[in-house]
Amino acid sequence: MLAPLISCKRSMMDIRLDGIGHSYDDFEVMRDISLDISSGQIVCIVGPSGCGKSTLLRFIGGLERPKLGRVLQLGEPPAGCLNPLTYIFQDFALLPWRSVSGNISLVLEDHGIKGAAADKIIEDVLARTKLSDFAKALPKQLSGGMKQRVAIARALAVKPAVMLMDEPLSALDSQTRELLMDDLVELWTRQPFTAVYVTHNLAEAVRLGHRVVVLSRRPGKIREVVDIDKPLAAREFGDADLEKTQKYLWQLMRDEARAADAELLHG
């Protein structure tokens, strides 16, 4: 009886990508991607457009199936975790007909969490995302940044083991993006979470990533993995060392990004 208790307490869930490859018909989009995502880390995936980074994220969360390779879940998700692999989408994906709190209760209802228990969770996640005053608002009343914070609150409500973030800030203007990056850093500092963060924005990658994975152009392969040791909370807008890393990442990608841009769209 002791063993499960201990594993519950120290539960860690890692994700391992094992030789992921994918193709549409004869068109190879991804080749042999192996990567470990260890818990408590934010792993950023960057790459030129069309390298399949969003597709990779859909593989990790089981929304799509790769032709080759496996996505493995190592260890057990923490106790109380309702949805181990939880997405945050670029376009927020809020139900426009539900209020802010309704959108959060949507993901709790299916787990049988209703009434006071749900209210408690909703109150907690809204407080953590600074949305407490907007519980009754409809999505149409919110700005883009607020909508994404609602989506983050919704993700927090199911206590995910790993957050899968698909260009979460790309639909926002640059000022809102800075603010939300600060919010994310604050969230992580208070309670470290695991995340896979897909972006094409290198500034986001160096601000939020403990590791930055650079993918190459089609077929997407891992080009390089860059670790950034500086603690998240110590990173700031325009840090010289981060700029250096960002420049380095851009050099890795530059030629491929140009080639990707010049390519005719497939299909």
Binding site: G61, L63, N83, Y87, F89, A93, L95, L106, D110
Partner: peptide
């Protein structure tokens, strides 16, 4: 469709 994918990603029935 993104709303439906969202529902699936949260494990809704």
């Amino acid at each position: 469709r993104t709303l439906i994918r969202m529902g699936q990603s949260f494990g809704l029935s």
